[in-house]
Design a protein around this nucleic acid. Sequence first.
DNA 1: TCTTTACCATACTCTGGCGTATGGAATGAG
DNA 2: CTCATTCCATACGCCAGAGTATGGTAAAGA
Lengths: 195, 195
Amino acid sequence: MTQPVSKKKERSTLSAGDWEQQALVLIAEQGIRAVAVESLARRMGVTKGSFYWHFPNRDALLEQSLLRWEKHDETNLQASLGAISDPRERLRSFFRRTGREKLTHDVYSSLCTASDHPKVEPLLERVAERRMKHIEAAFGEIGFAAEEALHRARLTYSTYLGFLQLQRQHQAPNLSSEEFEAYMTHVIATLIPEK
Amino acid sequence: MTQPVSKKKERSTLSAGDWEQQALVLIAEQGIRAVAVESLARRMGVTKGSFYWHFPNRDALLEQSLLRWEKHDETNLQASLGAISDPRERLRSFFRRTGREKLTHDVYSSLCTASDHPKVEPLLERVAERRMKHIEAAFGEIGFAAEEALHRARLTYSTYLGFLQLQRQHQAPNLSSEEFEAYMTHVIATLIPEK
DNA sequence: TCTTTACCATACTCTGGCGTATGGAATGAG
DNA sequence: CTCATTCCATACGCCAGAGTATGGTAAAGA
């Protein structure tokens, strides 16, 4: 009952990955600035001594955490959007995806708040680029010309980013509310032309 | 030639307003976190001693600076949008306005990056609320039903916020470029229905 | 001229957060 | 059993940036 129940948690020893994971949780909850070595250590139930055994410094932790998140987001994008053949449905799926994958989503929202950070800015660029490419491709498949598809992809992604911002300001309807569904329906109808 | 040439600048004495103004410039350039007492003092050509004569602490400066900016933005909105009678033209003007009033605009973009700050968050709420009301009213005048107008206003403003985010990531076309004009035309055509 | 008031300089203190140094405790290899 | 490796605790040093204490100067009244 008090022995190894879950995979490898319980009371064994910490790995670098554990630190990275908890750092991401902290980023999602309070932003990247909240990732302080000592407070994070308290959160893990240990002290700084442990941290500096796994990482040379705070920056290394951030780097690894962000890299971990980026990989996760990439495979995530492939899995949830790459499979859908109908481009219209793929775009709708992109919007709906906002609700699920809460941690990944919250981390991204927090990172947008730190677009000046030297480690974060290039990451945001890569991620946005990747996502927009997908959207642009979908609009291309629908039948829009190259430039039109580019513009429409940027507009679509801007809408998403803006929604995140409003969410941070508590001015966007809750993801699980009826108002959110109504708004989503409107957005999709406006940005994704029928037939 | 070395005497009081401009209104009251030159080499006289500093006022609280001067500090607030410079703080806003710093916010626009490097974000609110860059507003440190000593660095700001260096920028003004004086030392901390001066600052703490005008303000009780750093927070007071931020409060006054943000208040000053909010007032400026409010009158700005009234002046540039309140006068235009045609709702469609008013909306187009809102988008175009992005380019002008550089300082006000940059400050807002920087503040969006600090939506977690206790002083900034309510400010952002008020400003976004005010602006969206204008947009919503315009869509109402065009003829949309109440809920539709609300959704469309939120979508419109989200697009604006998202564009700011992309700008911060250097992924939005420059305001003075041809690509920007083309994109703007596309956005307006998509969000503001003709007739 | 003498003093007050407004404005600023200098030199501190104090706190938070990073990084270091070093000394255990546990665990597996031999 | 011994000992090396792994993981962590404790106790420091250090620096940036906020806030304080106090003294100086210039200009404006009295």
